[in-house]
């Protein structure tokens, strides 16, 4: 059980990788979905290709490309930076799809009413569409955050000292191959469960709003 304090000490690193990747993904995802809804065919095609490529590569391959490929050449990178960039890009692609779905859930009449009232494009997006789409996107975003929390274990392979990495080291040096990993699993569940409960609560609340509308 002496591994537990070591695992707990690594929680901030896991949370840091998860939160930073999520933040990058949330912002870049907006840019990607804006691109996919652009007036210009070229921008639409380009954004779509970026999403397809990022979703098509296994995250671990992307991480290796960034850290060992790009990171060993021109751009020197810390493992943490490479991890956040890699998972951030994967998140951007995934969250852009969540956003896109949520925009499709906003009735066409909302866009038409805003147009007919003469609201500008930016006012329509910010005041009319985004608040409605965000409610739809929330559960999907939280679900992605949970996946990301678990997938952050992947970055142990490029040497980020997060939960999986310190657990693995301890298991190797102590010779106990079972207990450390079971404890690590329990810690992931302990962090992820509140998020899952929150996501289900949001989903229920959204269903209620939709029924009332």
């Amino acid at each position: 059980m002496d591994v537990l304090p070591i695992i707990v000490a690594a929680i901030p690193v896991t949370l840091g990788v998860t939160a930073a990747s999520f933040a990058i993904g949330a912002v870049l995802g907006l840019a990607l979905v804006a691109g996919r809804r652009s007036r210009w065919t070229v921008v639409r095609g380009l954004s779509r290709s970026v999403v397809e490529v990022l979703r098509g590569i296994p995250p671990i391959v992307l991480l290796f490309i960034i850290f060992f490929g790009i990171g060993s050449g021109a751009l020197r990178m810390e493992p943490f930076q490479a991890a956040v960039i890699g998972l951030g890009l994967v998140s951007a692609a995934h969250l852009s799809e969540v956003y896109r779905g949520s925009l499709l859930a906003v009735p066409k009449g909302q866009f038409e009413a805003a147009d007919a009232l003469g609201l500008s494009r930016s006012t329509t997006s910010a005041r009319v569409i985004a608040p409605q789409a965000f409610r739809v996107a929330m559960p999907g975003m939280v679900t992605w955050a949970i996946s990301l929390l678990k997938d952050s274990a992947l970055v142990s392979t490029i040497g980020v000292a997060e939960i999986m990495s310190v657990t693995n080291q301890h298991a190797r040096s102590s010779g106990d191959g079972l207990m450390p990993f079971i404890l690590a699993a329990a810690v992931y569940i302990a962090i992820g469960t509140p998020l899952a409960i929150w996501s289900r609560w949001l989903e229920k609340r959204f269903a209620r709003i939709r029924k009332a509308a």
Binding site: E112, A113, D115, A116, L117, G118, V128, Q132, R135, A213
Partner: peptide, 20 residues
Amino acid sequence: LTQLRRRVGMVFQSFNLFPH
């Protein structure tokens, strides 16, 4: 377009009020 829509108001079959 802005000029036109300032002068012309529209009411829809499905109301289209902003629910939020």
